[in-house]
Protein backbone atom coordinates (compact mmCIF):
# COMPACT_ATOMS: atom_id res chain seq x y z
CA UNK A 1 0.00 0.00 0.00
CA UNK A 2 1.14 3.51 -0.79
CA UNK A 3 0.59 5.67 2.26
CA UNK A 4 1.93 8.93 0.88
CA UNK A 5 -0.92 10.81 -0.83
CA UNK A 6 1.41 12.71 -3.15
CA UNK A 7 3.00 9.50 -4.33
CA UNK A 8 -0.44 7.92 -4.76
CA UNK A 9 -1.55 10.89 -6.86
CA UNK A 10 1.44 10.43 -9.16
CA UNK A 11 0.84 6.69 -9.54
CA UNK A 12 -2.80 7.36 -10.50
CA UNK A 13 -2.03 10.25 -12.86
CA UNK A 14 0.73 8.28 -14.63
CA UNK A 15 -1.59 5.36 -15.29
CA UNK A 16 -4.42 7.61 -16.51
CA UNK A 17 -1.98 9.28 -18.91
CA UNK A 18 -1.38 5.93 -20.65
CA UNK A 19 -5.12 5.69 -21.41
CA UNK A 20 -5.05 8.81 -23.58
CA UNK A 21 -4.33 8.32 -27.26
CA UNK A 22 -3.01 10.60 -29.97
CA UNK A 23 -5.70 12.92 -31.34
CA UNK A 24 -8.26 12.26 -28.62
CA UNK A 25 -10.42 15.07 -27.23
CA UNK A 26 -10.31 14.92 -23.44
CA UNK A 27 -11.78 16.82 -20.50
CA UNK A 28 -9.99 16.77 -17.13
CA UNK A 29 -11.77 17.29 -13.83
CA UNK A 30 -10.19 18.99 -10.83
CA UNK A 31 -7.64 17.41 -8.51
CA UNK A 32 -5.66 14.36 -9.62
CA UNK A 33 -6.92 14.52 -13.25
CA UNK A 34 -5.24 17.93 -13.60
CA UNK A 35 -1.88 16.22 -12.97
CA UNK A 36 -2.30 13.90 -15.96
CA UNK A 37 -0.89 16.10 -18.79
CA UNK A 38 2.64 16.12 -17.35
CA UNK A 39 2.80 12.32 -17.73
CA UNK A 40 1.56 12.06 -21.32
CA UNK A 41 4.22 10.80 -23.72
CA UNK A 42 5.70 13.55 -25.92
CA UNK A 43 4.68 11.77 -29.13
CA UNK A 44 1.03 11.66 -28.08
CA UNK A 45 -0.96 14.83 -28.79
CA UNK A 46 -4.10 14.99 -26.66
CA UNK A 47 -6.58 17.81 -27.36
CA UNK A 48 -7.91 19.24 -24.12
CA UNK A 49 -11.46 20.59 -23.86
CA UNK A 50 -12.54 23.09 -21.22
CA UNK A 51 -16.26 23.52 -20.44
CA UNK A 52 -16.16 27.31 -20.52
CA UNK A 53 -15.54 27.24 -24.25
CA UNK A 54 -12.25 26.10 -25.70
CA UNK A 55 -10.44 23.14 -27.19
CA UNK A 56 -6.70 22.93 -27.54
CA UNK A 57 -6.18 24.20 -24.01
CA UNK A 58 -2.50 24.45 -23.08
CA UNK A 59 -0.68 24.76 -19.78
CA UNK A 60 -1.52 27.35 -17.12
CA UNK A 61 -0.37 30.83 -18.16
CA UNK A 62 2.89 31.99 -16.57
CA UNK A 63 2.23 34.94 -14.23
CA UNK A 64 4.07 37.36 -16.53
CA UNK A 65 1.96 36.40 -19.54
CA UNK A 66 -1.61 36.30 -18.22
CA UNK A 67 -4.42 37.11 -20.64
CA UNK A 68 -7.54 37.99 -18.62
CA UNK A 69 -9.77 36.90 -21.50
CA UNK A 70 -8.43 33.35 -21.36
CA UNK A 71 -9.35 31.10 -18.44
CA UNK A 72 -10.22 27.45 -17.97
CA UNK A 73 -13.37 26.06 -16.35
CA UNK A 74 -11.78 26.58 -12.93
CA UNK A 75 -11.19 30.28 -13.51
CA UNK A 76 -7.43 29.73 -13.86
CA UNK A 77 -5.57 31.74 -16.53
CA UNK A 78 -4.38 29.31 -19.19
CA UNK A 79 -2.77 29.21 -22.63
CA UNK A 80 -4.06 27.75 -25.88
CA UNK A 81 -2.33 25.69 -28.56
CA UNK A 82 -1.99 27.01 -32.13
CA UNK A 83 -4.67 24.58 -33.34
CA UNK A 84 -7.08 25.55 -30.54
CA UNK A 85 -10.35 27.45 -30.84
CA UNK A 86 -12.96 29.29 -28.77
CA UNK A 87 -16.75 28.88 -28.78
CA UNK A 88 -19.90 29.59 -26.80
CA UNK A 89 -21.38 27.41 -24.04
CA UNK A 90 -24.01 25.62 -26.21
CA UNK A 91 -21.19 24.46 -28.54
CA UNK A 92 -19.03 23.48 -25.59
CA UNK A 93 -21.76 21.20 -24.23
CA UNK A 94 -22.67 20.06 -27.72
CA UNK A 95 -19.13 18.68 -27.85
CA UNK A 96 -19.76 16.93 -24.53
CA UNK A 97 -23.26 15.51 -25.05
CA UNK A 98 -23.00 15.04 -28.79
CA UNK A 99 -20.44 12.26 -28.54
CA UNK A 100 -17.47 14.38 -29.65
CA UNK A 101 -15.51 13.99 -26.42
CA UNK A 102 -13.39 10.83 -26.27
CA UNK A 103 -12.68 10.76 -22.55
CA UNK A 104 -13.51 12.55 -19.35
CA UNK A 105 -11.35 11.96 -16.29
CA UNK A 106 -12.80 12.80 -12.92
CA UNK A 107 -12.66 12.07 -9.22
CA UNK A 108 -15.40 10.39 -7.19
CA UNK A 109 -16.81 10.04 -3.70
CA UNK A 110 -18.18 6.61 -4.64
CA UNK A 111 -18.33 4.26 -7.64
CA UNK A 112 -20.20 0.98 -7.73
CA UNK A 113 -20.00 -2.31 -9.57
CA UNK A 114 -22.69 -1.24 -12.06
CA UNK A 115 -20.64 1.80 -13.06
CA UNK A 116 -22.75 4.29 -11.14
CA UNK A 117 -20.87 7.39 -10.04
CA UNK A 118 -21.42 9.79 -7.14
CA UNK A 119 -19.21 12.86 -6.97
CA UNK A 120 -21.33 15.97 -6.43
CA UNK A 121 -23.50 15.87 -3.33
CA UNK A 122 -23.35 14.58 0.24
CA UNK A 123 -26.73 14.83 2.00
CA UNK A 124 -26.53 16.98 5.11
CA UNK A 125 -23.44 18.79 3.83
CA UNK A 126 -23.24 21.96 1.76
CA UNK A 127 -23.91 21.18 -1.91
CA UNK A 128 -21.96 23.46 -4.28
CA UNK A 129 -23.78 22.27 -7.43
CA UNK A 130 -22.94 19.77 -10.12
CA UNK A 131 -21.35 22.17 -12.61
CA UNK A 132 -20.62 20.31 -15.84
CA UNK A 133 -19.97 16.87 -14.30
CA UNK A 134 -23.35 15.33 -15.13
CA UNK A 135 -23.11 16.33 -18.79
CA UNK A 136 -19.52 15.08 -18.99
CA UNK A 137 -20.26 11.61 -17.63
CA UNK A 138 -23.40 11.31 -19.74
CA UNK A 139 -21.81 12.45 -22.98
CA UNK A 140 -18.17 11.35 -23.04
CA UNK A 141 -17.40 8.15 -24.94
CA UNK A 142 -15.20 6.97 -22.09
CA UNK A 143 -15.52 7.89 -18.39
CA UNK A 144 -12.42 7.23 -16.31
CA UNK A 145 -12.63 7.66 -12.56
CA UNK A 146 -9.27 8.57 -11.03
CA UNK A 147 -9.38 8.48 -7.24
CA UNK A 148 -7.87 7.18 -4.01
CA UNK A 149 -8.98 3.60 -3.41
CA UNK A 150 -10.44 4.36 0.01
CA UNK A 151 -11.59 7.33 2.06
CA UNK A 152 -9.39 6.98 5.16
CA UNK A 153 -9.65 3.18 4.92
CA UNK A 154 -13.35 2.99 3.99
CA UNK A 155 -13.98 1.45 0.57
CA UNK A 156 -15.12 3.81 -2.18
CA UNK A 157 -15.70 1.07 -4.77
CA UNK A 158 -19.03 -0.29 -3.56
CA UNK A 159 -21.75 -2.78 -4.40
CA UNK A 160 -24.16 0.14 -4.66
CA UNK A 161 -23.54 3.87 -4.33
CA UNK A 162 -25.22 5.39 -1.29
CA UNK A 163 -24.79 9.05 -2.29
CA UNK A 164 -26.87 10.93 -4.90
CA UNK A 165 -25.67 9.90 -8.35
CA UNK A 166 -23.88 12.09 -10.87
CA UNK A 167 -24.55 9.52 -13.57
CA UNK A 168 -26.15 6.07 -13.76
CA UNK A 169 -24.10 3.27 -15.37
CA UNK A 170 -21.61 5.68 -16.89
CA UNK A 171 -18.16 4.62 -15.62
CA UNK A 172 -15.85 2.62 -17.90
CA UNK A 173 -12.62 2.44 -15.89
CA UNK A 174 -11.58 3.01 -12.29
CA UNK A 175 -7.94 3.83 -11.62
CA UNK A 176 -6.67 3.99 -8.04
CA UNK A 177 -3.29 3.72 -6.34
CA UNK A 178 -4.11 -0.01 -5.87
CA UNK A 179 -4.97 -0.93 -9.43
CA UNK A 180 -7.22 -0.66 -12.45
CA UNK A 181 -10.78 -2.00 -12.80
CA UNK A 182 -12.92 -2.14 -15.90
CA UNK A 183 -16.68 -1.92 -15.71
CA UNK A 184 -18.20 -4.49 -18.08
CA UNK A 185 -21.73 -5.84 -18.63
CA UNK A 186 -20.54 -8.85 -16.58
CA UNK A 187 -19.50 -6.61 -13.69
CA UNK A 188 -16.20 -5.26 -12.45
CA UNK A 189 -12.96 -6.83 -13.61
CA UNK A 190 -9.64 -6.18 -11.90
CA UNK A 191 -7.19 -5.87 -14.77
CA UNK A 192 -4.07 -4.43 -13.16
CA UNK A 193 -2.42 -4.25 -9.75
CA UNK A 194 0.00 -1.59 -8.62
CA UNK A 195 3.38 -3.02 -7.55
CA UNK A 196 3.02 -2.02 -3.88
CA UNK A 197 -0.43 -3.58 -3.60
CA UNK A 198 -1.68 -7.17 -3.62
CA UNK A 199 -4.78 -9.21 -4.40
CA UNK A 200 -5.42 -9.62 -0.67
CA UNK A 201 -5.13 -5.93 -0.01
CA UNK A 202 -7.48 -5.03 -2.86
CA UNK A 203 -10.03 -7.60 -1.62
CA UNK A 204 -9.84 -6.12 1.88
CA UNK A 205 -10.40 -2.52 0.75
CA UNK A 206 -12.99 -3.10 -2.00
CA UNK A 207 -16.64 -3.64 -1.10
CA UNK A 208 -17.81 -4.34 -4.65
CA UNK A 209 -17.90 -7.78 -6.21
CA UNK A 210 -15.34 -8.19 -8.96
CA UNK A 211 -13.56 -10.80 -11.01
CA UNK A 212 -9.81 -10.94 -11.39
CA UNK A 213 -8.76 -10.93 -15.02
CA UNK A 214 -6.92 -14.07 -16.16
CA UNK A 215 -4.54 -11.66 -17.93
CA UNK A 216 -3.75 -9.71 -14.77
CA UNK A 217 -0.96 -7.17 -15.22
CA UNK A 218 1.28 -4.90 -13.19
CA UNK A 219 -0.20 -1.39 -13.40
CA UNK A 220 3.25 0.20 -13.37
CA UNK A 221 4.79 -1.40 -16.47
CA UNK A 222 2.08 -3.64 -17.95
CA UNK A 223 4.08 -6.80 -17.28
CA UNK A 224 2.04 -10.00 -16.80
CA UNK A 225 1.46 -11.42 -13.33
CA UNK A 226 1.56 -15.17 -13.14
CA UNK A 227 -0.62 -16.65 -10.45
Amino acid sequence: MINDRKEANIVIAKRVAKELKDGQVVNLGFGVPMMVPQFISKDVNVIFHSENGLVGMGADAPSEAIDKDLTNAGGVYVTIEDYGSYFDSPTSFGIVRGGHLDSTILGAFEVDQEGNLANWAVPGKFIPGMGGAMDLVTGAKQVIVAMFHTAKGSPKILKKCSLPLTGAKVVDKIITEFGLFEVTPQGLILKEIQKDSSLDEIRKYTEADYQVSPQLKRMDDGSPITA
Binding site: S89, G129, M130, G131, A133, M134, D135
Partner: peptide, 15 residues
Protein backbone atom coordinates in the same frame (compact mmCIF):
# COMPACT_ATOMS: atom_id res chain seq x y z
CA UNK B 1 -32.24 30.36 -2.54
CA UNK B 2 -30.59 28.28 -5.22
CA UNK B 3 -31.87 26.19 -8.13
CA UNK B 4 -29.15 24.01 -9.67
CA UNK B 5 -29.06 22.65 -13.20
CA UNK B 6 -26.27 20.71 -14.90
CA UNK B 7 -24.22 23.26 -16.84
CA UNK B 8 -25.11 21.86 -20.26
CA UNK B 9 -28.79 21.76 -19.33
CA UNK B 10 -28.78 25.32 -18.00
CA UNK B 11 -27.32 26.82 -21.16
CA UNK B 12 -29.74 24.82 -23.34
CA UNK B 13 -32.76 26.02 -21.29
CA UNK B 14 -31.60 29.58 -21.94
CA UNK B 15 -30.98 28.82 -25.62
Amino acid sequence: EVEFYPQGTLIEKIR
